[in-house]
Simulated scan of single mutants.
Amino acid sequence: MGLNGSRAEKVLEDISIACNKNTVPGDKSALNPGGIRLGTPAITTRGLMEADIEQVVEFIHMGLTLALEVKAASGPTLKEFKSTLAENPSFQEKLKLLRENVETFAQKFPMPGFEVF
């Protein structure tokens, strides 16, 4: 998508989707990873089925699309990316709305070991 793992991780974490930046084959430096790692055991343990996972993928796609918008509006560094994301009211509103949608969706699936979540 033209997005590195650090930028993807930042936006996805901000919308309550846990992931880790991760190197992928072809990366020139581990300091600038080109991918992310998503853990499916966390969602299957909560009872998500195939159709639910398709919704999760849609949320991830929306988050990465937002990250591309921020990247286009910011400078080349991760610091500038984070600053643009934090200081732009339009981006903050989009983050808030997407985070609310993700959290509302996630509330339908109980978290093992927690009676109240």
Rank of each mutant, 00 (worst) to 15 (best):
R7E: 07
M111T: 09
E69T: 01
N4Y: 06
T23N: 13
A18I: 07
T104R: 09
P110K: 08
G35A: 13
L95K: 11
R99V: 00
P89G: 02
E80T: 04
T45F: 14
N20K: 10
A42M: 12
T84N: 07
T77M: 01
G63E: 02
Q107C: 08
P89T: 06
E115Q: 10
T104D: 12
P41S: 05
I53Y: 12
A42Y: 14
M49G: 08
F59R: 00
L78V: 08
L31A: 15
R7D: 04
S6V: 05
K10P: 02
I36C: 05
T40K: 14
N32S: 15
L31H: 09
E13N: 14
E54S: 13
K82Y: 07
G5C: 03
G34R: 00
E100G: 10
E93V: 01
P25S: 10
K28Y: 08
N22M: 08
M111K: 14
V57G: 15
A106S: 12
H61I: 04
E115L: 14
P25T: 03
P25V: 01
E87G: 15
E115K: 11
E9W: 01
F105P: 01
L48E: 06
E100M: 12
P110L: 06
A51W: 10
R99T: 02
M49N: 08
E115F: 12
T104W: 05
R46H: 04
V24P: 01
K10C: 11
N22R: 07
L97G: 13
A72V: 03
S83W: 11
E50Q: 10
V24K: 11
R99S: 10
M111C: 14
F117Q: 12
F117S: 13
V24L: 13
A72L: 11
P112M: 06
F59G: 04
T65N: 13
P112S: 05
F59E: 01
P76H: 08
P33F: 03
P25L: 07
F109E: 11
V24W: 02
V11G: 01
P41H: 07
G5Q: 02
I36L: 09
P33K: 06
A30K: 15
E58R: 13
K96H: 15
V24F: 00
L68I: 03
E69D: 15
E103W: 06
S29P: 05
N101P: 06
G34H: 02
M111Y: 14
V24T: 09
L66D: 03
K10V: 07
F91P: 03
T44R: 05
G2S: 11
A30Q: 15
K94F: 10
Q92P: 06
D14S: 15
V57K: 11
L98D: 01
E54D: 14
L66A: 02
P25I: 00
